[in-house]
Design a protein around this nucleic acid. Sequence first.
DNA 1: CTGAAAGCGCTTACAG
DNA 2: CTGAAAGCGCTTACAG
Lengths: 326, 326
Amino acid sequence: MSIQKIARLAGVSVATVSRVLNNSESVKEKNRERVLKAIAESNYQPNLLARQLRTARSSMILVLVSNIANPFCAEVVKGIEEEAEKNGFRILLCNTGSDMARSRSALNLLSGKIVDGIITMDASSRLPELATLIGNAPWVQCAEYADDGDVSCVGINDVGAAQCVIDRLLARGCQRIALINHDLSYKYARSREEGYHSGLKAHQCEYAFVKYASDLSFSAGKAAMQALLRHTERPDAVFAVSDTLAAGAVLAIHEAGLKMPQDIAVVGFDGTELAEMVTPPLTTVYQPSKEIGRKAVGLLLNKIDNPEAPAERIMMDWQYISRASA
Amino acid sequence: MSIQKIARLAGVSVATVSRVLNNSESVKEKNRERVLKAIAESNYQPNLLARQLRTARSSMILVLVSNIANPFCAEVVKGIEEEAEKNGFRILLCNTGSDMARSRSALNLLSGKIVDGIITMDASSRLPELATLIGNAPWVQCAEYADDGDVSCVGINDVGAAQCVIDRLLARGCQRIALINHDLSYKYARSREEGYHSGLKAHQCEYAFVKYASDLSFSAGKAAMQALLRHTERPDAVFAVSDTLAAGAVLAIHEAGLKMPQDIAVVGFDGTELAEMVTPPLTTVYQPSKEIGRKAVGLLLNKIDNPEAPAERIMMDWQYISRASA
DNA sequence: CTGAAAGCGCTTACAG
DNA sequence: CTGAAAGCGCTTACAG
């Protein structure tokens, strides 16, 4: 079923059909009705491929996420969706699992003109390779940043937030604070580790112990905590760079028969609902996840409308939320 | 940058360029090299819109999910991704939030020929309207089923699983078992409620109390449990149709100062990692989520290759997992 | 207000 | 093994 058939059915030209489809310009009421009738009768649906090919516009944006199951990511995506919808854009989600081949394949949607722009939440250091694929296409990084400034991004001051966590833990008397971090190919992971170390140094604290979780999952957090517990100098506090990881740490601590926060204080990151779901509820750093998503869309749409605009960096506020775990 | 420019650069016809792009037939080695060189030099990327318009094939499938943040959905999606990838298909995720307008908009991708088929995980009763939009396009329902049999689906025996939960709770001496259910527009919600009632009836149990959560979230589960606790005849067991809901119930019970399972036993559903994250860990019904996703893709690809094939229904095995909460 | 025609970037019989 | 040409289904100046 094509626009041709509708034109024939309605007894008008394809141009007229196209005009009523795009309710553009003035079409004589009579003709409009005949076209609408023909469309309804034949259950016609316009072919988006043809339309997009012709107009070179899709009003779709691609969102590349390393793991949708992560509650923080899911929240950011919700913000992205809301803002995109408000502006007449649709989003396409691709869960890369941080897999290079999958990311590359997803990017074909961009280079193949299926989408108008892209928002990534994946590791910056994996992106240089992707950057060439992306080329000059509209792109913004969300909750993650490239080292150089030529791509727009939105996030928080990770160094400062991590430092604050360390300050608070030291203030409550903790002396051996361990860090459960994510893969350092993420810029945010490097920044939080930097904040961790500078926070300790500011208080002349000697003890430092970093354990890297194999991924951003509950089980990886648990495994990391178990490793920390086997350490000869057992930590009396642990800072995990994600609530999911912290939730895993909480279980490991429970299973070891230790009490929180008396034996070990725990602090998470992100401020997701998950932090309230575990026992004890988690002290955490709240990120305005939805707002981060919305801002990312804003930056992207700017770039789509105005390809020559320079890259922008937006830093959002974060907040330390104190609960029973620390 | 188009295939034309490449042809000109390489000094061959567009047909030849197209042939090397699709590494089809035999192209003289010399020409192949020249084309490849031209492509590399110009950083050419084929326009997928044009290709798909011409071939009427996209090798993409659309996945409509009501809430990606739900861990069960996220797992199913992972299974879908794996199987799709194995078959050379890419998936596009749309988070509908059970919003009709958004679902309708997402379906334009199908009717607009951007994707070859669709997998839905949304409420069956909301789908009749969508069904007309979908028409004869390849479609499978995942972890949810239509009442009539003309669309393929894959899931578990929800009635049987719910009955089993009731049997177990009664066997451990519970006498007042409440149900925290999801919106009845979901067929699976109706089936589990049916199993709940028939399970009670089979044991001549008079007490029955159903509370509907406003959505499938932690906070909705908590609110539902708080309502149950205000009931004059307080339940001594609660069966929630999702682990997320159950996690909310657990918090409400904690806050009420009650013990699990002594004062109230709790059983969840889905068998997600979340069930292990809360304290006490949740007894739950495990669904083979990834496998459900994989099977859904299998059914869909069958339908894409063979549009005349009849609809199929696949029922997977489930498993009762006993933990400390009941 | 309307239609004929060009063109978006591909693929694919068809002829050679 | 290769190229000229038609055509996928649209939109949009352009002329009337």
